[in-house]
Amino acid sequence: MTDSPRERLAAVRRDAIERLASLEAQLDDIAEARRGANSDDEHDPEGSTLAFDRAQAAVLAADSRHVIEEVDAAVGRLDAGTYGVCERCGRPIGAARLELRPTARLCVTCQAQAERRSG
């Protein structure tokens, strides 16, 4: 890929903003459906309820907001000249990792250590 980190980050941010707008519209639709329904359980018993749909959309919207925050933080690192430097060990984050995960804060080794500790 030949895009610069700033271009990759901008694309990720645009996608997250579009996803968030869609999810917020979905949440509005669910809220409107709840106002018009006597009960959330009037759905097909095999289908999902409005409460489940709302919870799922809310979690996905929160994830999109988190992605936007991570992109903004990565742009801040770009501006500060620390983008691509592991926040834990100070070594460079590999180009392949940054291409796949442009908001990465840790190198692969430090990320694996962090996941082992939390897992």
Rank of each mutant, 00 (worst) to 15 (best):
L50G: 12
L106W: 12
R13G: 13
F52Q: 08
A11C: 03
A80S: 14
A112D: 15
H43S: 05
P102W: 11
H66V: 01
V67N: 08
T82I: 05
A80N: 12
A37F: 05
G84M: 07
D63G: 04
C89N: 04
G84C: 05
V12S: 08
H66G: 12
R117F: 07
V67E: 13
L27H: 02
Q26G: 09
L106F: 13
E32Q: 09
A58M: 01
L20G: 09
T82P: 13
F52C: 00
R117N: 12
D53V: 00
A16K: 10
A73E: 13
A95M: 08
R54C: 00
A74G: 09
T109S: 15
R6Y: 05
D3V: 04
I30A: 04
A11G: 14
L78R: 00
S4P: 00
G76Y: 04
G90D: 11
L50R: 08
R88E: 10
S22Y: 01
G119H: 14
C86P: 06
G81H: 04
I30L: 15
R91L: 12
E115C: 13
I17F: 15
D15L: 13
R6F: 02
E70I: 01
E18V: 12
T103V: 14
C89H: 03
Q56N: 12
S39G: 05
R105W: 11
C107Q: 13
S39L: 05
E32R: 06
T2C: 01
E32F: 02
L106H: 13
L23Y: 03
I68P: 11
P102L: 09
Q56P: 00
A57E: 03
D28V: 00
I30K: 04
V12F: 04
L50Q: 08
L100S: 15
E18F: 06
A11S: 14
T2R: 06
R65V: 02
H66L: 08
A10T: 10
I93F: 06
V85A: 04
E42Y: 03
L20K: 15
Q26D: 14
S118N: 13
H66Y: 01
R6W: 04
V85W: 00
A55I: 01
R34V: 12
H43E: 12
S39H: 11
V59K: 06
E87V: 05
R101P: 05
I93N: 08
C86W: 01
L60W: 00
I93D: 09
S64V: 00
Q56E: 10
L20N: 10
G81D: 06
C89S: 10
L20E: 14
R97M: 03
D72P: 05
A57T: 03
V75F: 12
A31L: 04
R54M: 01
L60K: 05
C110I: 04
I17K: 15
I30G: 02
D3C: 03
P45S: 06
S48A: 07
S118F: 10
G119P: 07
T109R: 15
A10P: 05
G90I: 02
E99N: 10
S48F: 01
L50F: 07
S22F: 01
A62I: 00
A104C: 10
A37T: 12
